[in-house]
């Protein structure tokens, strides 16, 4: 009996060891997969992280998770959003206000892409296609149709922008790069609605940008476009200016004679 007891003990010890080895083996087998999230960042993202740690971290937090009352989380916003906000100078934010304003960008194009790469690898999200020319070959007429249905209500028919609520506004889009327009549609910066690739396919986005860039080439004979709002505005302006001039001319003539 004592012997069998010893055997039992030895057997259970063996089972324990076997279980431990199995568990340890499982861990070693699966742990690398789990820790893949901590996989080393790409070189560009490393550069981006360095920039992030000096310029963005105070509002968006250590890992881009956001800080309550200061800045939103960047998890899932994607590289497109970063490119839009940083390349137009809206980020880093100058001061809290109704909305972030466009200003001279703090980072150059390469740094912007590095930041975008870092945020992309941090939490994923929509990304911009390659290249700076995102309008060639777009169908301008189709783009105009899409623009009038989706964009013109805020950005106005001539792309001059317009007012929103409480001091916010839709900016002028008439001197905007292809990538910025694409990023705006894809990420829906600030109060702009998102136009994901399911709603406006990449081809349609290309059409819209082609339309916007093409209307920019339209010159304004006469010099002032008056928001490109059309004959009503122009008629009103001519009427007000013209009548005023006529009144003063009449006064001048009456005063002379």
């Amino acid at each position: 009996m004592p012997r069998s007891r010893a055997r039992r003990r030895a057997a259970s010890a063996l089972r324990l060891i076997a279980a431990l080895v199995f568990a340890g083996g499982l861990y070693t087998a699966f742990a690398p997969a789990i820790s893949a999230q901590d996989a080393p960042l790409s070189p560009a993202a490393m550069e981006g992280k360095a920039l992030f740690d000096t310029s963005c971290i105070s509002c968006h937090g250590m890992n881009g998770q956001g800080i309550e009352g200061r800045g939103p989380s960047l998890i899932g916003v994607g590289g497109a959003s970063v490119e839009f906000q940083v390349s137009t100078g809206r980020m880093p934010l100058g001061s809290q206000g109704a909305q972030a304003l466009e200003k001279p960008p703090v980072f150059n194009e390469e740094q912007t892409r590095q930041l975008a790469q870092y945020v992309q690898e941090l939490g994923g999200g929509p990304q911009l296609p390659e290249g700076n020319d995102l309008h060639s070959g777009g169908d301008i007429a189709a783009g105009g149709q899409i623009f009038r249905l989706n964009c013109s209500s805020c950005h106005a028919f001539g792309g001059g922008g317009g007012a929103l609520s409480s001091g916010k506004f839709a900016p002028r889009i008439s001197d905007t790069d292809d990538r910025v327009i694409w990023a705006a549609m894809l990420s829906g910066p600030q109060n702009m609605p998102v136009f994901g690739d399911n709603q406006l396919t990449p081809d349609q986005k290309r059409d819209v940008i082609a339309y916007i860039q093409e209307t920019l080439k339209d010159r304004d004979p006469g010099g002032f476009n008056l928001g490109r709002l059309g004959p009503t505005t122009e008629g009103l302006a001519v009427f007000v200016v013209g009548i005023t001039a006529l009144i003063f001319t009449a006064l001048w003539i009456a005063g002379k004679s």
Binding site: Q145, L149, N150, G188, P193, V194, F195, G196, N198, Q199
Partner: peptide
């Protein structure tokens, strides 16, 4: 849509709108 094609829920992203 304005061209008559039907719409799936996935066609409008969160924070998006469609006429």
């Amino acid at each position: 849509r304005d061209d008559g094609t039907p719409i799936r829920p996935a066609d409008v992203s969160a924070g998006g709108q469609m006429t």
